[in-house]
Amino acid sequence: MSAHPTPGLPGAGEGLLDRLLPTVATSLGVSGLARPGDRVLAPARRAVVVLVDGLGAELLRRRGGHAPFVRSLVGRPESVTLGCGFPSTTATSMATFGTGRLAGEHGLVGYEAYDPATGRAFNELSWEDGPDPRQWQPHPTVFEAASAQGVETVRVGPGFFDGSGLTEAALRGGRFVAASSLDRRVDVTLEVLRAHRRALVYLYWGDLDKVGHVHGCESWQWGEELESIDAALRRLAASLPPDCALHITADHGMVDVPHERRLDLAYEPDLAAGVAEVAGEPRSVQLHCMPGAVPDVLAAWRERLGSGAIVVTRDEAVAAGWFGPVESRVAPRIGDVVATMTGPVAVADSRRHRPELMALVGLHGSLTLDEVAIPWLCAPAERA
């Protein structure tokens, strides 16, 4: 079989999201996180990392007129474009970001992930009825490493994130400060920086992703939300201490998929045949098959999706490096068959997916450039 595209940015050479937070922490003097080939950032005493959920690099390139401040950072020599890894979805990317490892190591392999212990899939965002998050993802996080080495480490986000399954699995370490609005999160960030001479602050904002899902990433509502974010980030940057570096990134991009291009497994018996459990997400479906059914499932999905998707076995996906290095405990979580969409198509299942999910306009999860490419925008500290 011919080689399949590896998630990332061919030719960009700047790597994936897993190296961003370790590199920032290293610039603050945290030891033990750097790897050969990592970027070397200018030293700083304090750093802020802002993650704007859904701010893909291609979206920013096309719609940057709504974000003059953020766009001004794109042209800085320190700013680069990364790949978020695969699948290009929030739960996976948050663990990639927080642990400095790709999905095959941290084990959060999708929006919905198959738990071999129960034989069913659970939602890694809500973590409802999920396993112990620290056992599911046992690797230490970058936040834990920074905090252990004396860096004031603070995570700023919505209150319901504090102690959630995803947070405990992917982003644990330091302390959490809850704030609802983006302006309040900026205020909290600045308060922490003013109170501590050595600090790492992580600020999360998720509304751009929400707007994109509901209205589409090409909608006027998406542009309006980006304008609000840009204003808040401009204020943050203008108020930072001179020894503080600013980093802005994302967890994935997004594409709009017309509803007439959606396949519903409830009405696709040929695609549902031989499938015991469906995981992943509509743009990157992971199929756990009944015994002996993999060849038939693979053939049926390849025939039905044609050039609109790449459909491979687990072994092919792992060999192609889609999930990065894959630990033995993680391999069974990946579908026996992985179908990742390359065209404007998606696959859902109205028998199990909520109507709200079925109605979404903007989607992500696959390995297309629009979904995988993310910015790493840098404003270095003026002095350390």
Rank of each mutant, 00 (worst) to 15 (best):
R61F: 13
F86I: 11
A25T: 01
T26G: 14
G32V: 13
G83T: 07
P87N: 01
R63F: 15
P68H: 07
R61A: 15
R35A: 12
T26D: 15
R62E: 15
F86G: 11
D38E: 10
F86K: 08
H66F: 14
R35M: 09
D38H: 10
A25D: 07
V74Q: 04
T26V: 13
T81D: 11
L73D: 09
S72R: 09
S27A: 15
T26S: 14
R45S: 13
L51Q: 07
G54Q: 00
G37H: 08
T89L: 11
T81K: 07
G37R: 07
V30H: 02
D53N: 00
G32M: 02
G85S: 12
R35I: 04
L82S: 12
G85R: 10
S31Q: 13
S79Y: 00
S88P: 05
S27Y: 04
G29S: 05
V24D: 14
H66T: 11
H66A: 15
A42K: 04
G54H: 02
D38R: 05
T26C: 12
V48T: 05
T81N: 08
D53F: 01
T81L: 11
A91L: 00
R39E: 14
S88G: 11
S88Q: 10
V70M: 14
V52Y: 03
L51P: 09
A42M: 02
L55G: 02
A25R: 01
R39N: 10
A67V: 04
G29A: 06
D53L: 00
V30S: 03
A67D: 09
V24H: 04
F69W: 11
V80S: 13
R76N: 09
V48K: 05
V70L: 15
A34N: 12
E78T: 13
L41N: 06
P36Y: 08
G29L: 07
P36G: 06
G85E: 14
V48F: 10
A34M: 10
D38K: 03
G83P: 09
P77I: 04
R62W: 13
F86S: 09
G83Q: 05
D38Y: 06
L55R: 00
R61D: 15
T90M: 01
A34K: 08
T81W: 03
L41V: 07
R71I: 12
L55K: 00
V24S: 11
E78P: 14
F69D: 06
L59H: 13
V80D: 12
L82F: 03
L41W: 08
S79E: 02
V40S: 13
L82P: 14
A42S: 08
V70N: 03
D53E: 01
P87E: 04
P87K: 01
G64D: 08
S31E: 15
G85W: 03
D38P: 10
L51W: 01
G65M: 10
P36I: 03
R35K: 13
A47W: 06
L82K: 12
A91W: 00
R61S: 15
S72T: 11
R46W: 02
G54Y: 00
V40G: 09
V24N: 12
S72I: 07
